[in-house]
Design a protein around this nucleic acid. Structure first.
Lengths: 144, 144
DNA sequence: TATTGTTATACTCTATAACTATA
DNA sequence: TATAGTTATAGAGTATAACAATA
């Protein structure tokens, strides 16, 4: 069916966003599966590699997850030797999550596959359109 | 934290899409809660009101849900007298889902609140930008 | 044989509250 | 008192397979 058979029955921006996200998420999940990663754990790994050295609290906010969910995600990555927890010396309550060498390596290879899957999903748009979409959607995603 | 404190750590289009969707979904869920609806059931109700007279199978494809999930959603709406199931005379396996008068009425009032919530979420963009976003995202959501 | 709807089940994800250690 | 992380648990959502009715 899809748009052609049924037409734009629902044209709410939020519905289109939800459906596009479902399409994109499915492709990313499939690309990550061979690496034992999911979109969530992949995102945590990405943040663990950032110069910002994020705490779990920051990861939770950035990914819009409950802190308790981040515990489980980091537990999993840590048990596989992909990230490490370090107590922040300036605030001993906080734990900074950093990627290991193995984590960085896995992220590099998995990331290539994710970007490939992304090119397929967003390939219906040309380069300029993708840039435009990124700019617009970023403002909705991070309304500062 | 958000973008300002942490910067654009992850700039994947798929990640931005996921986060924007989370923002939008949260607003829509909150707007629908007083009506006993969720984004999913609201979408089913919207489809049940369409001229297309969709079968459950078509609803499942359009919303990217498993047919068995549509059963549960329609069960709920039907038990509340908002939709009805009619056996399609041309294919007696299929069940067409149509909204009742009560369903149409609820959709009208709930829809107004959803659109209000949507204006808040997408209000960071001006009218032309929203139209552009809709056009771009529609092609990703329905790659025909 | 294939498809629509249905049921059942196991699994994942989500939401919430309570607890600890630090601040 | 408040915050970061953790644990536990219940609820919602998801995926899968099997089945009956119809094609």
């Amino acid at each position: 069916m899809a748009q052609t058979t049924m037409g734009a029955v629902i044209d709410d921006l939020s519905f289109l966003l939800a459906r596009a996200n479902a399409v994109s998420l499915e492709a990313a999940s499939a690309a990550l599966r061979p690496f034992g990663l999911k979109p969530r754990s992949y995102s945590v790994l990405a943040l663990a590699l950032s110069d910002h050295r994020p705490s779990q609290r920051e990861i939770a906010e950035y990914l819009r997850l409950d802190p308790s969910q981040v515990v489980a995600l980091v537990d999993d990555l840590q048990s596989r030797g992909l990230v490490e927890r370090e107590t922040d010396p300036s605030d001993r309550r906080a734990k900074v999550v950093t990627a290991t060498v193995d984590g960085a390596r896995l992220f590099a290879t998995a990331g290539a596959r994710v970007r490939q899957a992304e090119r397929e999903v967003f390939g219906v748009l040309d380069e300029a359109e993708r840039a435009m979409l990124r700019k617009l959607i970023d403002r909705v995603a991070f309304p500062d």
